[in-house]
Design a protein around this nucleic acid. Sequence first.
RNA 1: GGGGGUGUAGCUCAGUUGGUUAGAGCGCUGGCCUGUCACGCCAGAGGCCGCGGGUUCGAGUCCCGUCACUCCCGCCA
Length: 633
Amino acid sequence: MSLLENADSLPRPMLDKCLQAVNLWRKQIEKGNTMHLYRTHTCGALRAENIDEQVRVSGWVHRKRDHGGLLFIDLRDHYGLTQLVIEPSSPHFALAEQIRAESVIRADGKVVARDDEARNPNLPTGDIEVYLSELEILSETGDLPLPVFGEPDYPEDIRLRYRFLDLRRDSLHRNIVLRSDIISWLRQRMTADGFREYQTPILTASSPEGARDFLVPSRIHPGKFYALPQAPQQFKQLLMVAGFDRYFQIAPCFRDEDARADRSPGEFYQLDLEMSFVTQEDVFACVEPVLRDLFRAFGNGKRVTENFPRIPYAEAMQKYGSDKPDLRIPIEMQDVTPAFDGSDFKIFANMIAKDKRVRVWAVPAKTGGSRAFCDRMNSWAQGEGQPGLGYIFFREGEGAGPLAKNIGPERTEKIRTQLGLEDGDAVFFCAGVPKAFAEFAGRARNRIGAELELIDADQFAFCWIVDFPMFETDETTGKLDFSHNPFSMPQGGMEALESKDPIDILGHQYDIVCNGIELSSGAIRNHKPEIMLKAFAIAGYSAEVVEQEFGGMLNAFRYGAPPHGGIAPGVDRIVMLLAEQENLREVVAFPMNQQAEDLLMQAPAPVSNAQLRELHIRPSLPKTTPTDEPVKE
RNA sequence: GGGGGUGUAGCUCAGUUGGUUAGAGCGCUGGCCUGUCACGCCAGAGGCCGCGGGUUCGAGUCCCGUCACUCCCGCCA
């Protein structure tokens, strides 16, 4: 049964299919029929039990070792490597010597046991080799712009231009297979959990909120445009209104925004899901086991959070300085304002006296208690545009550093006991209005965790962030706006909207975070038109505008809409985490570059004037590129 | 839209304070080699030093501009 390399790791149906195919070829051979045109075995299949069999294999010439009197070829396909041996007496020796790496060949030969000292324990097929009797070149290669053998870093543009070569390389090849396996697993699991995959339109209407849309001009309706969906948000809610109860989709999403290492330009995928008649707890109870089991299945034995802690947004900001905390870092910040209030450290004391909102947060740094480390953090902070990063470090039973001197031993000791610090530890301080410095404090926390190697990397640390505020004030304009999704239900419903200060209203809105990466956002939706109109009114949108922009969905809610909610974990980021990759391009088969160009397929590209005329489009190009010729005939 | 980094052989890189003929490894070509699995040994070909301008007796090296790639900020409900 060990016909296929890594047979154990293959899903059962896939393994059965492969075995069926192999058996079919076998039967043909036994009947004396001609061999399969290309192969009786894959390059990962042959083992000691195949010794003396006459076999046929096809694949790429991975590596050639020419001893003059003896020639070895490593033949590679999707499944593995098999060593071919060609002796000088072979009529094909001369041809075999000529073959270049990455040519595709078909080879017939006899499976032979390797001598003890010639065995290669690093290869699943390393106990045998195939003595070549027939050789056919199926496809030749020219000069390679990118070697397939070996895995050093290569320039992105060359990797992307020759993506078909890059994808042959082992690590990338495995990442793409992993992605496929993950998506397949998710589909099976979601279906088993009572969800059905419903497709939603790719050509749809532009939405005024959120990211920039990709637009598609209409031929039939001059001057009008379709938009590619930023997410199937409204459609999945309409499916709930239509009574389908549980929806999911491996959904393509399109946003015309600039790329990042962890953000594809243009398009990405979500495990989009929505459920009817659910509370926030129901969504958690459904999604949490899916992600936990997925990460256990594909996480290479790393620990996965058993029960995802639920951290209110405000608490996350206070403890971690982030709404996507990396919980692998065992650092929690604390408010130590009283220790500085009225102290002789005048900078902080005066700030506190002047403004009631000012707080001092402490970032404890276990094992960071050396002047060298503290100074390094301080200059890092200055490099981040901060005035500095005050610190105390503890040694010989007392606090040291300029700050400790200023506030005195009593207050220093109070800080030490509050944070549970000891000799050899340090603590850093950020002061100001929390909203202004929380994000920097969070980065300091990450930095400290990384520098002191406090991160426990052998785990996937999940959490829910809950109780997001519905509204926030824009720092520059002072205008009130939705802080997240305008379609989510405010906690407390209409009553909260009518009675509370908008800034204090929380939403039934939640994120899933893993190792400091935001995997998804979700919400219990606002399915009541009157509450939605009220929420939009608070954010400054008139009923007319809301009716005009979201009329379709609003109207649907006037004909019997179930309470519903959902979430949409990002597939690309999940695969990144499980493949342990820092860059999205390592887990996408055919990615675009940072300028949103497909270097392999040459997109975007000019189109003919005839095509443009049909679409009633005439380009109006920026004057800065007069030499461009964006239109071909 | 803004900021940082990089750009030298097909590929990965080195190149001193500005100094005469720009190097190495992989790959390629030729030769030798019967147990390699990063095979080994010998020889050879291969360079608009991203592009344009400037400083200088002299520029791969310094300056200005520009292009390409990349990372980050803005942006991403």
